[in-house]
């Protein structure tokens, strides 16, 4: 890649300044504030705070409810990622075969990416509403089959499906691009070698897709840990009985509903460390093995 060098450094500084300002205002400043709050105890209605070292963290780590939130978050992250990537991969494999009308499918499949999470949440809330939505037909046929309002695992299933649906299109774009960057002659060579389409997929396309796969794994897991608020808030508000109280949602609940600013700050620091270390582990140890030279 060609790089551009500027002799006048002030021009470069001027050009990057707005971006740096935005990053500072919306990332470094809040993060440092959160870090500060995490080590203090803030009074609910303001009016001074007290430095308490690791007390907030100690309290959290001994709190069963916090671990319960970590547990459901992990379930949510793994399930959403698996579902979203699985669906995206299947759709991308079909789109890549260039069957009739694949261009309109491709556009249609990319669209959901542009839909905001709360809108998705609302739409799925209608679909899965046990007494009025599409799911109500299921309940009519099999009474008590579906009740996300009372049943925690039903609620979790619902949130997972909505979350996965939101992430499918992003993974789809990358999978499709990855598939299309595999030289056609490789699959042709495999066809000449006697491999049927399914075999070619297993032996040629999927192995060559592993770099894309691991990139998407990082992005999807991170996303499902941090970006699930809109869906949970509109669909379940963390219920029933905290069954869908994901870590992000708990931060919001404890902080803005429970007015426990310090506890919420400590939780967001833990979440941040979790996401950073996940990303680090995946890029450092996993991705390294999947490059072909």
């Amino acid at each position: 890649m060609r790089r551009a060098y500027f002799k006048n450094n002030w021009i470069a500084a001027l050009v990057v300044a707005p971006q740096l300002l935005i990053i500072f205002v919306f990332f470094y400043w809040p993060s440092s504030q959160a870090l500060y709050w995490a080590f203090t105890l803030e009074q609910p209605w303001g009016g001074g705070n007290e430095w308490v070292w690791f007390e907030n963290f100690a309290y959290l780590l001994s709190d069963d409810r916090y671990w319960q939130s970590v547990r459901v978050s992990t379930v949510y992250a793994l399930a959403t990622t698996a579902l979203a990537m699985g669906m995206a991969l299947i759709l991308a494999l079909f789109a890549d075969r260039q069957l009739r009308g694949y261009k309109s499918f491709r556009i249609g499949l990319i669209w959901p990416y542009a839909v905001a999470a709360p809108a998705i949440g609302l739409a799925f809330r209608f679909i899965f509403n046990p007494s009025a939505g599409v799911a109500s037909y299921l309940n009519y046929a099999f009474p008590d089959f579906w009740d996300p309002i009372m049943n925690g695992s039903h609620a979790m299933t619902m949130v997972i499906i909505a979350g996965a649906w939101k992430q499918v299109s992003y993974s789809f774009i990358f999978f499709l691009a990855g598939l299309q960057s595999i030289p056609r002659s490789l699959t042709e060579a495999a066809a000449m070698d006697g491999a049927r389409p399914m075999r070619r997929m297993m032996d040629i396309q999927l192995p060559l897709l592993t770099p894309t796969f691991f990139f998407l794994l990082v992005i999807n897991i991170t996303d499902s840990f941090t970006d699930s608020f809109g869906i949970v808030d509109t669909m379940t508000s963390g219920g029933p009985a905290r069954a869908t109280n994901l870590m992000v949602y708990k931060i919001y609940e404890d902080g803005f509903r429970g007015l426990d600013y310090s506890g919420a700050a400590a939780q967001s620091i833990i979440l941040m460390i979790l996401v950073i270390s996940l990303t680090f582990i995946q890029f450092r140890y996993v991705e390294r093995r999947v490059h072909y030279t």
């Binding site: 030289p183 042709e188 495999a190 066809a191 000449m192």
Partner: peptide, 20 residues
Amino acid sequence: LEPRERGCAMVFQNYALYPH
């Protein structure tokens, strides 16, 4: 017939070796 049913082997211009 599918390529595999024709009994031909082919050498491609860019070799098309499986990189993995």
